[in-house]
């Protein structure tokens, strides 16, 4: 987690020569304006995010049914996850399937569509951005996909395929194990132009134009060279932001499969880790166990984040 800054320097080198404690305190006093400026955000963040996350971490070592006082269980929840919970193992597999496919793909889609839009004349950029952001803007309109993939012969896809004679009976697109994962992946990709897409759009806008002039003089000949030699290196911070958001999205898949494929899904074929958390937290009221799963998921995401941060830094 320490290597996210491409340009982070060690605080103050002289600090090493003197007794550490006194110096940190002095440093802190010297920077009191900085602390004052971080304070409004950090205080609220501590109260409403850090404390609940820590509490949830502690709860992961307990049995907590939301009615009685939590009962200490030690590592039991974690043991149970790997030794006694077969469905959790399925959930890992399903989540990885989603994460490995939708994560990188949706990241590339976000980046390239932001770039395409940036190539358009400025007047229509805002409009095109809205068109592409529409699925995220409209909240849960993804439910219209149920009409298209509906399992009876009146479903849009089924009715056309039957009419053209490709099928001789309707397919249960959303509940058949052979199809539902693929279909949810398509819908997830359709939904993927969200937060990181807008961040990339803004990233392209804050780029220093003089770099492109310089590039043209230095012999850059087409837009791909421009993209890889100028844009990508200068957009690294935004690319890192996008990566973290896509990791959270790809590993956190759950709401869409639940809404479209049903909960629980056929043979748990759509049971992701997030759904598993939902199952234990909001259905069975085993908050301690749900917290343990959430914690493991967060750790996996952090490891992935660190891996990607290394990859992005090695590029230059």
């Amino acid at each position: 987690m320490n290597n996210q800054n491409t340009n982070s320097t060690v605080a103050i080198p002289e600090a090493l020569n003197k007794p550490q404690k006194v110096n940190v305190w002095k440093e802190m006093k010297k920077n009191k304006i900085s602390y004052a400026m971080v304070a409004p955000f950090m205080i609220l963040f501590t109260i409403f995010t850090i404390v609940p996350v820590l509490a949830s971490c502690i709860l992961s070592f307990t049995y907590f049914n939301m009615l009685e006082w939590p009962e200490w269980r030690g590592w039991y929840n974690y043991q149970r996850l790997f030794l006694d919970d077969e469905i959790f193992l399925i959930a890992i597999r399903v989540t990885l399937k989603f994460a490995v496919i939708t994560g990188p793909l949706s990241y590339l889609i976000c980046f390239f569509f932001a770039w395409f839009i940036n190539e358009l004349p400025p007047k229509i950029r805002a409009f095109m951005t809205m068109v592409f952001y529409a699925p995220s803007l409209c909240g849960s309109v993804y439910t219209i996909w149920t009409f298209i993939f509906s399992g009876d012969s009146y479903g849009v896809l089924n009715s056309y395929l039957l009419q053209w004679g490709i099928l001789d009976g309707p397919i249960q697109w959303l509940t058949d194990e052979n199809y539902n994962v693929t279909i949810i992946i398509i819908i997830q990709l359709w939904l993927s132009l969200g937060t990181s897409f807008l961040a990339f759009i803004a990233g392209f806008q804050t780029q220093d134009r003089s770099l492109f002039e310089a590039g043209a003089i230095d012999g850059i000949r087409n837009r791909f060279q421009e993209l890889f030699y100028i844009t990508v290196p200068s957009m690294k911070p935004q690319l890192m932001f996008g990566a973290v958001i896509q990791i959270a999205g790809a590993f956190g898949v759950g709401a869409v499969p639940r809404a479209l494929g049903g909960f629980p899904s056929t043979n748990y074929s759509l049971q992701t880790i997030e759904t598993h958390i939902f199952d234990y937290g909001s259905v069975r009221y085993e908050m301690g166990y749900a917290s343990a799963i959430a914690f493991l998921l967060a750790i996996v995401m952090i490891l992935t984040r660190n891996l990607i941060s290394k990859l992005l830094q090695e590029k230059d």
Binding site: F48, T49, S56, L59, V244, A248, G281, A298
Partner: peptide, 15 residues
């Protein structure tokens, strides 16, 4: 960054 990667559901009660 860590908070960003923590799934929200289990935080509701502490919050």
């Amino acid at each position: 960054q860590f908070a960003l990667l923590f799934t929200g559901g289990t935080m509701a009660i502490p919050q």
